[in-house]
Amino acid sequence: MWRAVASNGLTMLIVLLFLMAGVILWGQREYTAEGPLDQAICVQVPSGSTMSRISRNLAEQGAITSDTIFRLGADYSDKTQDLKAGSFLVPEGASMADIVDIITRGGASTCGTEVVYRIGVTRAQVQVRELDPATNRYVEKAEFVPGEDEAPEAFAQVREKADTRYRIALAEGVTSWQVVEELKQVDVLEGEVSEIPPEGMLAPDSYEVRVGDNRADVIAEMQARQEAILTAAWQSRADGLPLASPQEALILASIIEKETGTPEERGVVASVFTNRLEAGMPLQTDPTVIYGITQGRGVLGRGLRRSELRAETPWNTYVIRGLPPTPIANPGRASIEAAVNPDNTDFIYFVAKTLDPADGHNFAVTLDEHNENVAAYRRLEAERAND
């Protein structure tokens, strides 16, 4: 009798073990299987959240089929304690394993509402925008010019939310003085900038910042990025350039940046200045004259006078030969790369095609060709004046 009981007990144990193994295998398949989301969502993880709370929220949003399996999977993969605060984009069909990885990986938030402080060449602007998970595109909620416009209610609302993200977007061609002045107006930052950084050494890019970040630290990050870009570009430069150092490459890149905003033209414009340097010709570029007048402290806001084109300043490339002593703005990566790898052309001259800078330039090898292009441009100016 006892032998029969023991035999039956052993059989039951084996059955239970098989059932448990089956449940575990089923749970593993559920954890890694394609999830129920039919479109992407933005998952917010507040500071101090727990995996249990997030799993319940995900289940309520229909992102996972079981909050229990989600928690067990996170525990089994040893990621429960790695939960990161932020707003994270979860794509459609994401498995529970994918979602755990997304919310524990760390790094910058990938969705939600953000305030963007845009530092442009002619003005600064604050934009409130929100990522639409369904289209993976940002939708603008409000914008205003600080110091000119009253901040809209939408801005005040998002500033009160703990999960709002902040970003500083630096445009190509801004000067270091402009950057420092506009950073003073970014109300989420703290601290002072003791001196204006060297011209050209701030990388035009997008920088995510947090409330309470130090302005000097943001400047340091901008400098570090530009240094890395310049170093990499200089190491891959073309042979035989009339440039003696990375600094000279940065100076030329800043001139290219201010002369054209058309991406496909940068290499051609770079070739014109390279050809002029090799021939010992003055660069004769207006942006350098303007920098000699403003020193990068604001926008000139008018055309150049003949007397200014003849005035002797260290940056007036109508008067000096070769490069000016410093960059005249902060060039972007594309202009730096164009400066060290210019197109191979014989062009010596260029002038705008139309009165719209976006239309690019006409290039010429000879002075006669250039004069014809200039005459065509002058006719357009006269037509506008008559209109």
Rank of each mutant, 00 (worst) to 15 (best):
G322V: 06
I64C: 00
G267Y: 08
A156E: 14
M20Q: 12
S47Q: 10
G191A: 02
P263H: 15
K84W: 02
R137K: 14
A339W: 07
R302D: 08
R56L: 08
G240D: 06
N316P: 05
A238F: 04
V139C: 04
V209L: 04
K161L: 14
V218P: 03
G62L: 06
Q81T: 01
L241I: 08
E195M: 01
C111F: 12
L183Q: 10
W234G: 04
T80S: 02
P287T: 08
T354L: 11
L243R: 05
N275D: 13
D38H: 06
T231Q: 11
Q157I: 13
T366V: 03
L367H: 13
V43F: 02
V188K: 01
Y377N: 07
I336F: 00
G332M: 00
A216F: 06
N344Y: 07
V209C: 02
E182S: 12
F273H: 11
M12W: 14
L252F: 04
E264N: 11
M201K: 13
G86D: 09
R167H: 02
E34V: 10
A279P: 00
A220K: 12
E60M: 06
W315G: 00
E181L: 03
G120R: 03
E150D: 14
D387H: 15
K84P: 00
P327A: 09
E30H: 01
R310T: 15
S47A: 12
A224K: 09
V126P: 00
T288L: 11
Q226I: 12
P357F: 11
G62Q: 08
T122F: 15
L304W: 12
G360T: 10
T122A: 12
R215P: 05
I168R: 07
T11M: 05
S52G: 14
E199H: 01
D356Y: 02
M281F: 07
S109T: 15
A329M: 06
I41Q: 07
D187G: 04
S109Q: 06
R105K: 14
F347S: 05
Q125S: 06
V351C: 10
Q178D: 15
D101L: 02
M20N: 06
P152K: 10
K141Y: 06
E372Y: 05
V365Y: 04
S87Q: 07
R29F: 09
D213E: 15
C111N: 05
E278V: 08
V319G: 04
E143W: 14
I328S: 04
P331V: 13
Q226W: 08
I255G: 01
A74Y: 00
A85W: 07
S52T: 13
P314W: 14
A33Y: 13
G332D: 06
Y207P: 02
D387S: 14
S307A: 13
I119W: 05
I290F: 02
N373K: 13
D38F: 01
R237V: 10
Q235P: 03
N275P: 09
N275C: 12
Q185T: 15
V193Q: 04
G280E: 11
V158Y: 03
A220G: 13
A375P: 02
E221Y: 00
I256A: 05
A4S: 09
L37H: 06
Q39S: 09
A4H: 05
N362Q: 14
L300G: 00
R378M: 14
M51H: 02
T68V: 09
P246M: 09
R237F: 01
K161T: 14
